[in-house]
């Protein structure tokens, strides 16, 4: 499958995400924020980084990048979209996912290998995992505290839309230890930790992140 990875000014993890896509057996397509063209890709990844220097709010300026028109339109029609870290922030700013992401409760940037539990293994991006499978992937963020009003949290919990939850340590004060969520249809996933940094033994904490990049194909050929 062709998976597009969008580069914004200030994106850091686009090259790692492209590599993860290839390691996962898919074709990576580099997409540019200033274009109005998804080049016919089957799915899109919004990678991590500090687009526009995190000015205004993280993801707030990128959310209005030209290519986001096509991403939002596509997502609403079922195009699989994965937002990692800064990409997750863009997804909440775009209102494709509910809630918001605030400064970590302890105010420090955090970088660690983080244990997660995959609680929803039926989204477009997580079907390669078993439900409740525990994985370890790198986490690195300054503004990763997920917040939402009580009603939204209740709905996310009730509808099984918590994709991943922090285990052992809540690294940023996220409500209910939420590390990632999905939309109602399950095609849009936002995740604060970085599975793209854990796809090869040579680097990173292991290969636990690979499932995020093989799920699409498994789903398509299932």
């Amino acid at each position: 499958m062709k998976i597009g990875v969008i580069t914004f000014p200030g994106t850091l993890d686009d090259v790692d995400a492209q590599r993860a896509v290839r390691v996962g057996g898919n074709e990576a397509v580099a997409l540019w924020h200033g274009d109005h063209d998804l080049q016919g890709v089957d799915a899109v990844i919004l990678p991590g980084g500090f687009s526009y220097g995190d000015y205004l709010r993280c993801g707030a300026i990128s959310r209005f990048a030209p290519i986001m028109t096509e991403v939002i339109e596509g997502a609403q029609k079922g195009l699989p979209v994965l937002g990692i870290c800064n990409g997750f922030q863009m997804l909440v700013e775009s209102h494709l996912l509910p809630g918001g992401l605030l400064r970590n409760d302890h105010l420090k940037f955090i970088c660690r290998d983080q244990k997660l539990r995959i609680e929803n293994a039926s989204t477009a991006w997580t079907s390669a995992f078993r439900k409740d499978q525990e994985i370890v992937v790198p986490l690195k963020n300054g503004e990763g505290q997920y917040v939402a009003d009580d009603e939204t949290v209740k709905r996310l919990e009730g509808e099984g839309r918590i994709v991943a939850r922090y285990v052992d340590v809540n690294p940023n004060g996220s409500i209910n230890d939420i590390a990632g969520i999905t939309n109602e249809a399950g095609n849009v996933v936002g995740l604060m930790p970085h599975p793209e940094h854990a796809v090869e033994r040579l680097t990173g904490s292991g290969t636990d992140g690979l499932g995020f990049f093989t799920s699409l194909a498994e789903k398509a050929f299932a």
Binding site: L102, L107, Q145, G173
Partner: peptide, 10 residues
């Protein structure tokens, strides 16, 4: 301003 019910870590 952050909403009253939202934590303001800063």
């Amino acid at each position: 301003m952050p909403k009253p019910e939202i934590l303001d870590p800063q």
